[in-house]
């Protein structure tokens, strides 16, 4: 089914013990796009990705990946996808080349045929080259740096030339240079037509890489769209106020999207128009005594994210 969306999920639910991690998640990811699932720690990003990658079963709901139903056509779905998890899925005591050759030999083609020893060797060499690991090919993975390990892990997930690739927090714990390298790999994958579904805690990453961003919070998607749409959706501007005393700061901090205790500055979202700004100032400071100064900025994606995932949205999932 080449025209089916890369990922289609409806009503995904998952509960661990008493923790309701996902409560009815719907997703639609078109082919060939980069989609980011954004959420704070514990939001359920890994759970979502593991369900979509067939490693965990949802309690309810259904999903198709690359056109294959995850329940009834799991083997086909597995041949069309790959997952690079949060922790490297490699053997420390094998070399980079051995890891890749082994994965290549275990990979079946879309028709279900097995990869020959020679083909596996060729594929491994190709990937080592492409990920700049040819020099380290015959070293044990144990001796690799964090960035090399991540690249090898990604290479291992590409042996089967998947149509849809899941990346769970691909840049967590990487230094800025390795992060840049990984971003360019993602762009290259996307340029070749692979659908990339990645999770991240970093807005900047989602903003830079993804065509569309879904924000996961409290087990549901609280927003979905391009980064431009998300920014527009919330508000265009942020009003920063400097307060006269710590008591006022403490009283108002819970309503703010941005806070800076050292300077007693709090930020609030607004459309930037005079009526709204005036009303906001009045609401915050009815007697006109606690606000010392104010300024107006364009809201950042961080502000949007913080508004969307403010504790007010947060329900029993985090007790």
């Amino acid at each position: 089914m080449p025209d089916a969306p890369a990922i289609e999920a409806t009503g995904l639910r998952k509960t661990y013990g008493k923790v309701e991690v996902l409560r009815g998640l719907d997703l639609a990811v078109p082919r060939g796009t980069v989609h980011a699932l954004l959420g704070p720690n514990g939001a359920g990003k890994t759970t979502t990705v593991r369900i979509l990658a067939t490693l965990t079963e949802a309690d309810a709901g259904s999903a198709r990946v690359a056109g294959h139903d995850l329940r009834t056509e799991r083997a086909r779905a597995r041949r069309a996808i790959s997952l690079t998890g949060q922790f490297a899925a490699l053997d420390e005591m094998q070399t980079g080349a051995e890891n890749l050759r082994m994965m290549a030999r275990l990979t079946r083609t879309h028709g279900g045929a097995r990869t020959s020893r020679a083909a596996a060797r060729t594929r491994a060499a190709e990937l080592l080259d492409r990920f700049d690991l040819a020099d380290a090919a015959d070293r044990l993975v144990r001796t690799y740096s964090g960035g090399m390990r991540r690249r090898l892990d990604l290479a291992a997930s590409l042996v089967g030339q998947p149509e849809v690739i899941f990346l769970d927090e691909p840049t967590a714990g990487l230094d800025p240079r390795s992060r840049q390298e990984l971003w360019s790999v993602v762009r290259e994958l996307s340029a070749r037509g692979t659908t990339v579904f990645l999770t991240t805690q970093y807005l900047e990453e989602a903003d830079r890489l993804a065509d569309r961003i879904a924000v996961l919070h409290g087990g549901e998607l609280v927003a979905e769209g391009t980064s431009e749409e998300l920014k527009r959706r919330v508000a265009g501007q942020r009003l920063d106020v400097v307060l006269t005393d710590p008591a006022a700061y403490l009283r108002l901090v819970s309503q703010a999207v941005y806070s800076e205790p050292e300077t007693r500055t709090l930020g609030f979202l607004t459309d930037g128009g005079a009526p709204q700004v005036r009303a906001l100032l009045d609401a915050l400071d009815p007697d006109g005594t606690v606000i010392e100064r104010f300024s107006l900025h364009t809201a950042t994606l961080d502000d949007v994210f913080l508004t969307l995932t403010k504790p007010a949205h947060q329900e029993p999932s985090h007790v």
Partner: peptide, 9 residues
């Protein structure tokens, strides 16, 4: 480690 997940996938 995570290697079992990769085998499963």
């Amino acid at each position: 480690g995570g290697v079992i997940d990769r085998f499963r996938s």
